[in-house]
Write a protein that binds this DNA or RNA. Structure first.
Lengths: 198, 198
DNA sequence: GTCTATAAATCGATAGAC
DNA sequence: GTCTATCGATTTATAGAC
């Protein structure tokens, strides 16, 4: 599908490159950064280990490439902010479930969550997930004590993600999305709008 | 401090052995199993790497030794069950905070949580934390749809632990225990006793 | 583009001297 | 009990042939 015939060939066959990236995403999501070897990525993709370096460079570069998400967090969260604080709990839950139930997005998100415990990824979730994703929501909704409220919200969302998608604990993992939403929406709504203890 | 003079010397000087174990617990809690090397444990303890094997055998044995907790989960949870379902939310929160705010216990618990993402430790938390710690609570309180309710409870407790003790997200990490308890107790109480969506 | 061969570093584990 | 020396296995990464 190359659109240019001129000199300077595009680096790598698209099929092989995509196969390596898919294999890497799955293994990083399942075993984390340290638990995944270049050899395992190459083996599952059916190519030579040297090709992985040829296409993606060092192991860390491959990891970063596997973390690329196909959604813009700010764009996804914008409707939640726009809809106002009165229904923020349910709206946020709908967004979370919709993003995480997308199998392709989920692999990248799982790799990110797993990466938290390997690298200095603590910052990636603390500054990324909270600062970029949930921080603007708290400010956009005009909450009082926004930092506290959003941390409470984050703790419930993160715990749900861990049990449903990472640890796959039943009956939560197999629960229909609607039931999950209607269960957790009141909790989040409480953190958004209820009076906070002093 | 040896109490026996007879033959068969006790294996290892208590000081050195304890130093290795403390170093291992801290590193396992901070970097997980794969991220911790025998050499790093020995270096931080100020001893030779060979001594680690001498005292604890293989690396997995050292990891298991570092996971030893000084509390019996069933014993800690018994009062929560005995106090009844009407105050289970607050009582459970008190237990969680008391155990996790103990610095010595926390290191072992952190090592366990970190270990989840290395080994097949998924089972250790899924069957251990849920099956042993929270499972009996749900049954002991005589809840209807106990499995669902306890998974909801677990998701909030686990998320709180992750943000407060593992990721150390502010302002939750520095929040006084009483404020944390009074914030999350109503949420847990709701999962215990509120009507569940169908 | 793909693969062989190998360099270079790291780690777990053991044997054995003191 | 403690440490030196080292083996053997893995892994990342590179150089270069085809």
């Amino acid at each position: 599908m190359s659109t240019s015939r001129g000199p300077g060939r595009r680096p790598g066959s698209p099929d092989t490159r995509a196969a390596i990236l898919d294999s890497a995403r799955g293994l990083f999501a399942e075993r984390g950064l340290k638990g995944t070897t270049i050899r395992a990525v190459a083996s599952e993709a059916g190519v030579d280990p040297a090709l992985v370096h040829h296409y993606f460079g060092a192991k860390d570069d491959l990891f970063l490439a596997a973390l690329e998400i196909k959604v813009d967090p700010r764009q996804v969260m914008a409707p939640v902010i726009a809809a106002g604080v009165e229904a923020a709990g349910e709206n946020l839950m709908r967004v979370v479930l919709r993003v995480w139930d997308d199998p392709e997005i989920r692999l990248s998100l799982l790799a990110i969550v797993r990466g938290v415990f390997d690298r200095e990824g603590q910052r990636m979730v603390r500054d990324g997930f909270l600062g970029i994703v949930l921080g603007p929501v708290g400010r956009g909704l005009g909450l009082d004590r926004a930092d506290e409220r959003m941390v409470f919200v984050a703790s419930q969302v993160f715990g749900l993600i861990m049990l449903r998608y990472v640890l796959e604990v039943e009956p939560l993992a197999s629960m229909p999305a609607d039931l999950v939403i209607s269960t957790y929406a009141p909790t989040l709504q409480g953190y958004f709008t209820d009076d906070l203890p002093s």
